[in-house]
Amino acid sequence: MDNRLRELREQMGWSQAALAERLDVSRQTINALETGKYDPSLPLAFRIAKLFDEPIESVFIYHDP
């Protein structure tokens, strides 16, 4: 699953640590999300989408295997 997290974060001018604080997760989790090494749970995915005021499907892009 791809995501636009880095792009959205950079648009807001936030560091990984700042975004982590807003989402109440660790900076390492943000890094793992941005590099595609970790796919978030549904509640976290919704929190991310809500924070950036974007539909969830525009933040996380699912590809058929």
């Binding site: 997760v25 660790s26 390492q28 989790t29």
Partner: peptide, 8 residues
């Protein structure tokens, strides 16, 4: 108490 990735 840890975040979800750390819990994993």
């Amino acid at each position: 108490n840890v975040d979800e990735m750390q819990r994993r």
